[in-house]
Nucleic acid binder design. Structure first.
Length: 501
RNA sequence: GCCUCGGUAGCUCAAUUGGCAGAGCAGUUGACUCUUAAUCAAUUGGUUGUGGGUUCGAGUCCCUCCCGGGGUACCA
């Protein structure tokens, strides 16, 4: 069967009711309907969440609870179920002599994974488990597929990423991670709002993708009859807003880069960029430091973050205690590669870099050799936060030159957990110098120059500090995840149309 | 892109040198009205990712392709 847009529709993908387990569940669904019960047509208003009910236990208290059935223990004429919603889990207890023969028979149509609502009274079992004695119940939704295994959870990484709902259902720690990610975003916003920053939304579809040097995704607008690009950075539009008089702006949103996928890279990722008029990169240092500490304290309640391996052993501890170290780029390089690193001949630098274990491609320029030493040998060792300042001018064409060392620019790269987390600049606001650098970057292709942005600068942009912060990497650091895929709900995977997903 | 490891029942995992593809959970049937990884008895369930090859015989060895993990390259 051919679908409209040219991709092939695989009937086996979603409709493999050849599976015996599904067949049994469908038979139960039919049996319910034959009894006049449609398990997809009920509204139910719980008095509280399952976990909340447990926390507010009172013998004999009447409650109405709804959730998914996650376990059952069948005693014949009575049955225990575990009911789970976002707030937690509670045990419910159904008895044949309370519900009656007919109703108890309906109750037995329930399977693991089904949604139900119960009304009843709370009691404590002999084993001390807070439970609800069911007076009445209603089936809220039947699950036609069985849930993952109850004890080991869902382990297959591919299924976990492709069918994240199963991962969330089966693995509580995964759900916790994503709830915490949501809290991180909330606290970032709250912090910036408290400092008078205005949240804005700028175009994701751009005629000229600027603000970074990454490969963009291309798409096409039919009515306009032109190609547009998915944005690779937020920068150029936020600076237009500085020109317009929004002195403190930020945007928290998705960037798209058409590049390799790895443990640290997803093609779409969440970026925070914030600009503060009349500030500079040192203003942004204070901002980043305060913000990350605020988020850690608010979300985790601590500034000491432990990362653990699969066995639960602590593999590293990140200490966010202030003040954070501030070190010039060249100092770090000299400490690693020798105090005379910047004095020796380029060929000698190349030789030493290889001796230190950095892979140096033949076409690397001299500054790229140094950068390779930094990226491969120094950055991975920066676990506690460090502001790496005064980067070489060649690396960052869009920042202001340092007054005290004209070969460097007024920027920092904040490294935590062995990764770049947040770069910040004293933003370039000289329209002539900016034009020169953009033209250089465009390499003789004038269609790559965002002329409207340059016009905006010519109207005058206030001096400003600007920063970007990779939210996904921040979450990896704060939540102890080694892979970006474990902090993104639906990470990019290659389509697999023939799978069961 | 390259290197490397992996893909076995719905889920979690076994399978010795190439020799009958197995267990737990879930499911089904039965017993049990305070269990909680409930228990006990019986039982269903497989195109071993795909396609090919070697062999009397392939989950296992060889080749192809697909998907995934890790590394590497690319990458503000």
């Amino acid at each position: 069967m051919r679908w409209r847009h040219g991709w092939v529709f695989h009937p086996g993908a979603a409709m493999d009711d050849t599976n015996a387990l599904m067949g049994q569940r469908k038979a139960k669904l039919d049996s319910l309907r034959a009894r006049g019960i449609d398990p997809f047509r009920n509204r139910f208003t719980p008095t509280e969440g399952c976990g909340e009910a447990r926390a507010r236990y009172a013998e004999g208290r009447e409650v109405a609870l709804a959730g998914r059935i996650t376990a059952h223990r069948d005693m014949g004429k009575s049955m225990f179920l575990d009911l789970k919603d976002q707030s937690g889990r509670i045990q419910i207890y159904a008895q044949k002599n309370v519900l009656g023969d007919e109703s108890f028979e309906v109750f037995r149509h329930l399977d693991l994974g089904d949604f139900m609502g119960v009304r009843g009274t709370m009691f404590m079992t002999r084993m001390g488990e807070i439970s609800v004695k069911v007076q009445s119940f209603v089936i809220l939704a039947k699950a036609l597929r069985p849930p993952p295994e109850k004890w080991h959870g869902l382990a297959d990484t591919e299924t976990r990423y492709r069918q994240r709902y199963l991962d969330l259902m089966a693995n509580d720690e995964v759900k916790r991670t994503f709830l915490l990610r949501s809290a991180v975003l909330r606290e970032v916003r709250q912090f910036l709002h408290a400092r008078g920053f205005v949240e804005v939304e700028t175009p994701m579809m751009q005629a000229i993708p600027g603000g970074a040097a990454a490969q963009p995704f291309v798409t096409h607008h039919n009515a306009l009859g032109c190609d547009v690009y998915l944005r690779i950075a937020l920068e150029l539009y936020l600076k237009r807003l500085l020109v317009g008089g929004l002195d403190r702006v930020f945007e928290l949103g998705r960037n798209f880069r058409n590049e390799g996928i790895s443990r640290r890279h997803n093609p779409e990722f969440t970026m925070l960029e914030a600009y503060q008029a009349y500030g500079d990169y040192e203003t942004m240092m204070e901002l980043v430091e305060s913000m990350v500490c605020h988020v850690a304290q608010a979300v985790l309640g601590t500034l000491h973050i432990e990362h653990k391996d699969a066995q639960g052993n602590v593999t590293r501890t990140i200490r966010l205690d202030r003040p954070w170290r501030r070190v010039p780029y060249k100092t770090l390089v000299r400490d690693k590669a020798g105090p005379d690193w910047f004095e020796v001949a380029p060929a000698e630098r190349r030789r030493r870099a290889v001796a230190l274990g950095a892979e140096i491609a033949a076409e690397y320029a001299d500054f790229e050799v140094t950068q390779a030493v930094f990226e491969k040998l120094i950055e991975p060792t920066l676990i506690d936060p460090v502001f790496v300042t005064h980067a070489p001018k060649e690396l960052i064409p869009l920042a202001k030159t340092s007054a005290d060392d004209p070969s460097t620019v007024d920027v920092f790269e904040c490294c935590i957990n062995g990764q770049e987390i947040a770069p910040a600049y004293s933003e370039q606001n000289d329209p002539l110098e900016q034009r020169e650098r953009l033209e250089h970057q465009a390499g003789g292709e004038p269609q790559k120059i965002d002329e409207d942005f340059l016009v905006a600068l010519e109207h005058g942009m206030p001096p400003a500090g600007g920063m970007g912060l990779g939210i996904d990497r921040l979450c990896m650091m704060l939540l102890g995840q080694d892979s970006i895929r474990d902090v993104i709900l639906f990470p990019q995977l290659k389509p697999k149309p023939s799978s069961g997903a």
